[in-house]
Structures are given as C-alpha cells and as structure tokens.
Nucleic acid binder design. Structure first.
Lengths: 201, 201
DNA sequence: GTCTATATGGCGATAGAC
DNA sequence: GTCTATCGCCATATAGAC
C-alpha cells in the first residue's frame, strides 16, 4: 500500500522514520499487547514526542495495521518455496519456525496479538481471522499435494493435518515464550509432521 | 486458602458476593485481558461500586489470583480420572476439551491470560509457568505408562508427546476462538492422540 | 516534521461517611 | 459492607507555534 516510487528527497527521511517507529511498535506491542501498549512509549523509544509520532500515523489503530503489514512482509519471504512441491512447502514452514526461534520479539508479537484479537471488537480481529483462513488453505493445499503423491499417512485428512500443524506451531510458541528452555519449537513441529507423512522429512 | 469452617452468619453473604465478583471477573478478563480489563467494569456487572469491590479484594492483582484459583478448582474435577491408567488420563483430558467447547468464556480466559502472561513482569507469569510445568509432567507420566504397556507408537518420546498434545490443545483453542466454525477442538485433539498410540482411543 | 500545551476521559487506590 | 469523593497517574487525540 506504500507509495513505492519516491524514496528520495525529504521523503526518504520520512520513510526511515516510519520504519523506526514500526520497529519500536513491534517491541512495545510485543511486551504489552496492543491495548496496553502506548504510543507514548513507542515515541520515546525513537526519541520523539507522542504528538510527533502521530504526524506519521493518524492514530493508534493505523499504527497497528502498519506493524502487522510489516510483519507479514518479513515472514512472507520464508514461505516462498516451491509451490508445486507440497513437502517443500512444509519444509519452508519449519524453516520459518526455526528462524522465529532467533527473533523472540516477533513470536511474542504474534502470540500476544492473536490472543488479544480473538475479541470480536479488537481492531486486529478481522486481520487475524483472514490470516488464519489463508494460512489454513495454503497448508491444506500442500498436504493435498503430498497425499496425491501417496506420501500422506493413511487415514489422515489434509485439512485436519493443516489445522493440527498450525495448532502445534502456535501452541509450541506459547510454551516457548513461557519458558524458553522447555521446548524446541522447530523440533516439536518436525515431530508432528513426521507422524503425518510416510517419507523422510 | 479460603477459610472453610464458617460459611454461616453474615459471612455466607460475603462468600456469595465474592463468588459473584469472581464470575464477573472471568467475563471481563476474558474479553479484555487482565491489563485492559477494569475492576470498575467488574464492579458494575455485579451492581456495586469500584470501591465496594475493593472491600472484598485488596487490589486488582489479588482479584486476578482468586479468579485463576477458581478456574483451577473447576477444571480439576475433570482430570480426576484413574491415575494408574495412562490412556484414561488422556481420555479425561479430551473430555475436558469437549466440556470447554460449551464454556467459551473459560477458553477465552485461558487463551487471553496465558498469552498476556508470557511477559515476565505480568502478575500471572509465575502462575502460568508453574501450571504448564505441572500439566506437562502430569501428561508425560500418562504417556510413560502408555509406553510401558507397549501402546505408544514406535519412535515417540513421552515427553515430546506431552508437549505436542498441550500445544495442539492450546493452538486449537486459538483457532476456535477466532472462528468457531473453523475447528472442532476435541476432534482435532483426538486426531493427534490417535497418531501417538497403537490402540483404540 | 516536530514540538508544547491542552482537552477529555479511564484507571487503581485510599479516606471517610453511613 | 457499601457508598461518594477525590487524588494522582496515564492514556489518545487535537490545536497551534516554530
């Protein structure tokens, strides 16, 4: 949605500032959630006043939307695997989980906001509902291709496998955030996938 | 921790009042989380002033602790199965998930608060860390007994199975709260358990 | 583009009357 | 046991100077 043609002149500085704000926004919303995180604190982190921040984003909701968009852009790079090969899609997902272990802030952001957003009146509710529906159909399609090659364990339904895989990933994140020594998110994910397929992962 | 000997006289009314407050607390903390939920709103729901509520609970944190304790008391009844039979313990867990489908408020409370409490400075952080550790060892022990009877699928580690089962349950709750039509929590849990064992569930 | 100042309102906690 | 009143703090958003 960002205008892409003009990153020069004084707009370059503005774009940089916006980016700084979004990074700080990830940190603050990660730790306190959206409702309790304050744009004041985000502003202080980038060394400006709260009113100064609101020059770049009309209001708090718009800032949240921009934060979510940035997060999406970043993690989408990981899912760009071979679209034809279902197993490769799943492997890409596991690589994403592995990468997530190195950026606790992003995991915290997702976990905190997705739970908060289960409330129907939350400003990110529709975003998360849509996102889960999309991810679900994406992973279901991958398992369907795996099944078509006869590599899905007998009695396993692709859609159910997708829901289960997403659940395992989210649930493992929660356990990991509560106690980082308690679980290896990627390993737990691999364990689950191995139960679902008949070939080497 | 409640004094159990004296539910008569004027204390009976107080105990009833406390209970009312806790029920309303579940509703409010479910919807808005602890940080954004206000004791003012809880008070209004039971028809009293905020100061009146604070006669029963010294402060907001103490109210949260009491809410969590009540929730624990309620769900503990479901885990009282046959301690010797590992599979029966798992079945009890699935019955609990089934029951949860009928009380969205409790699911919301757990999902919202556990995510919020991943922040180390959250007043319920220690509670959730301890609770997950306890549940984990409880379920691990169940899978160990299943394994001892030769009913665990080959190559499955009891501790890993426990972590995975907890993850599936938590993750399914999140999907269910975001879209109640998208998933059957108990069925998804059963699907996972069937992958882990070699006998009928 | 960033600031100060301010309007407006919600919060938790306490003091003290009844 | 419950209330009203109030204190002190923090929040978002806006107006207007520079």
């Amino acid at each position: 949605m960002t205008v892409t043609g003009k990153p020069r002149g004084k707009y370059a500085k503005t774009a940089g500032r916006r980016r700084e704000i979004l990074e700080a926004g990830i940190d603050v919303f990660s730790a306190g959630g959206f409702r309790s995180g304050s744009i004041r604190e985000i502003a202080e982190r980038v060394g400006m006043s709260q009113a100064g921040l609101l020059h770049h984003f009309a209001n708090k909701n718009e800032l949240l939307a921009a934060v979510l968009e940035l997060r999406d852009d970043q993690s989408r790079e990981y899912t760009n695997g071979d679209e034809e090969n279902g197993l490769e899609t799943i492997r890409g997902l596991i690589r994403l989980v592995e990468y997530n272990s190195s950026v606790p802030g992003l995991v915290e952001l997702h976990c905190t906001l997705s739970a908060e957003a289960t409330a129907p009146d939350h400003p990110a509710h529709d975003y998360f509902v849509g996102r889960y529906a999309w991810v679900n159909s994406f992973i279901t399609a991958a398992f369907e291709r795996i099944q078509a090659r006869g590599e899905l364990a007998p009695g396993v339904d692709p859609a159910s496998a997708a829901r289960g895989l997403i659940a395992v990933i989210d649930g493992a994140q929660l356990q990991w955030l509560l106690d980082r020594e308690s679980i290896d998110m990627a390993e737990e994910t691999r364990m689950f996938v191995r139960l679902l397929i008949t070939v080497e992962l």
